[in-house]
Design a binder for these strands. Structure first.
Ligand SMILES: [Mn+2]
Ligand SMILES: [Mn+2]
Ligand SMILES: [Zn+2]
Ligand SMILES: [Zn+2]
Lengths: 149, 149
DNA sequence: TCTTAATTGCAACTTAGTTGCAAACACAGA
DNA sequence: TCTGTGTTTGCAACTAAGTTGCAATTAAGA
């Protein structure tokens, strides 16, 4: 439970404790990356994180490395949302696996939405249709309400 | 209806007629791209097409341009399958829209499978859950049967 | 405070994809 | 079949994202 933070905003202290919990050193770059991801309402591209933090003097290689490390540590998920760019999303604290959810991306405006309230069902049209594997992540592309005519 | 071709293989003549139907000139590069996509059993990355055709002397810029043009002409769909690489897939002749289907990509081995026999249903967990837009393309990621332990 | 391994900034590098332009080409019409 | 014209190509140079090696800096435990 985070105290003193605005809703949806990690405090400096909670960002630090989240790093310590996974055995990573608390560095300015990692904290900045976590806070940048936390401030965003949708998954961010690496370039977006770089843009948002380079102006504070962080190097792009540091940011790329931080994103990779945070992902390997399980604090951040790396999403492949299908516009030829990777995106990173900060997992909620005490992630119990329930945070997996489909994502929607608008093919017109590029907007990405977390479909946290949705389940996905794949149904074979014929009896013999067999799924090619075990589903772990779903991406839906289409036209968002703003872009649908 | 194509005559004289092996199943699933476009003849030279049918590749040409497909180009003429959409008002494009029949050039060696475009025919080669169409045949390369046709020979593949799964959507191809631009790099894959480049690799398969560069050795015959085609330039990579020509191949990239051909893929874009074939896509704009509606002969080829461009899929964004979520590994930060675009893929291209030749549409079947007399495409009636029924060729839209979900795709599966294995997060371990990268294999891509066309899930032509499947429908996707998105169900909101609560009554108020509203889809963020109109679904047009679905990608499922996961572990294929070969890679699942 | 000191020590040491982890992390950073930098600059050079890699690789996919794009672009401008002159030469080559497809094809409609003669 | 030949020709004229607009289209397409190959080339080489370029752009932009992401990666890498390494010396300098820093976090954190002793
Ligand atoms: Mn999400
Ligand atoms: Mn397909
Ligand atoms: Zn939109
Ligand atoms: Zn696999």
């Amino acid at each position: 439970m985070i105290k003193g933070g605005k809703p949806g905003r990690l405090t400096l202290e909670s960002a630090k404790s989240v790093l310590r919990e996974v055995g990573m050193r608390c560095t300015a770059a990692r904290i900045a990356v976590i806070q940048s991801l936390d401030a965003a309402r949708a998954p961010m591209t690496p370039g977006g994180v770089v843009d948002s933090l380079c102006e504070y003097g962080f190097d792009k290689s540091t940011i790329y490395r931080s994103l990779t490390e945070l992902n390997e540590a399980g604090l951040v998920v790396r999403l492949d949302l299908g516009d030829a760019v990777r995106r990173f999303e900060l997992l909620p604290p005490e992630n119990d696996g329930a945070s997996e959810h489909p994502h929607f991306m608008c093919v017109d405006c590029g907007k990405v939405v977390c479909m946290s309230g949705f389940d996905v069902e794949l149904k074979g049209r014929s009896r013999k249709a067999r799924a090619p594997g075990i589903m772990s992540e779903v991406l839906v592309r289409g036209h968002c309400h703003d872009c649908a005519t």
